[in-house]
Amino acid sequence: MTATVERRAAAATGVVVGSWRAVSLRLEGQWTWYRRHWTASLLSSGLQPVLFLAAMGLGFGSQVRPGPLTGGAPYLAYVAPTVLVSGLITIAVAEAGLPILSGFKWKRDYWAVASSPISPGQLFAAELVWITARLTLGAVLYLAVTALLGGWTNPGALLVAPIAVLAGAACATPVMAFAATTKGDGHVFAAVNRFVVMPMTLFAGTFFPVDRLPVPVRPLAWISPLWHGNELARGVALGGVRLWPALGHLAVLLGVLGLGLAVGRRCFRRRLVV
C-alpha cells in the first residue's frame, strides 16, 4: 500500500533570477562574510602594496638618484605605479588559488551554490567580481596613501588604479580556472607563486626597466601580463604614454582576461556538473 499525502503546503517559493541578479546575490553572500572578517582580509591583502611601496619607494628609493634610468623621475614616483600593478597581481593570484580550490574541496560551499538556481558560470563570474572588488578597494587605498607620500607627479596617475585592477583580474581568471581543475591539496599554488609570480614581480619592469636584463631573458618579461600592466601604468603615471603601444598593452591584458573568462567558466561548470 502506497501512502500518498495530498500536498497541503504551498508551491516552492524559489525562483530563477537573471544572471546579473544571480551574481549580485552571491556577492551579497560574500559581503556577509566580509563584514565579519574584513580586518584580516584587508590587512593580509589590501595593505601589501602599501608596505612594498614603503620599503622599495621610500627605503630603497632614498638611495637612488633620479636619472635616465627613471626617466628623470624620483624613484618613488618611478615605482609607485608598478608596485601597485605587481601587488594587485600577487593578491589576485593568491585569492584565485587556494580560496577558490577551498570552495570546491574544503569549504565546499560551491556545491551548495550549485544546488541552488545559480549556475556554475554565474558563480564563477561572482567570484571574479568579488576578487576584483577587493583589488579595487586596495587600489583606492594605495592611490590615496601614495598621494600623501608625494608619489604621483601627474594627474594620469588616477588611471593607474583601473589598469592595476585589470591586470590583477586578468591574472586571476586563469588561476581560478586552474584551481577549478585542481584535485590535490593545492601545494601547486605555492609553486605558482614561487616560480611564476615572484620572478615576474622581480624581472618584469616593476623596479627597473626590462632593457637592463640580458637580451635572451627579455622575452620572458615581455610575455608576462605584469610587464604590459607596468608599461601602461608607468606611462600614464609619469606621462608620455604613446597611443599604439598603450593599446597593445591593453589588448594583451584584455585578451588574457577574455581567455581566462572563457576557460574559467568552462572549468567551473566541468567541476560542479559531473
Partner: peptide
C-alpha cells in the same frame, strides 16, 4: 533547482 531542496551526503555549510 528553484523548486527542490538538496541535502548532500557531506555537509557543505559555510
Amino acid at each position: 533547482r528553484a523548486r527542490i531542496g538538496v541535502v548532500p551526503q557531506q555537509d557543505n555549510l559555510d
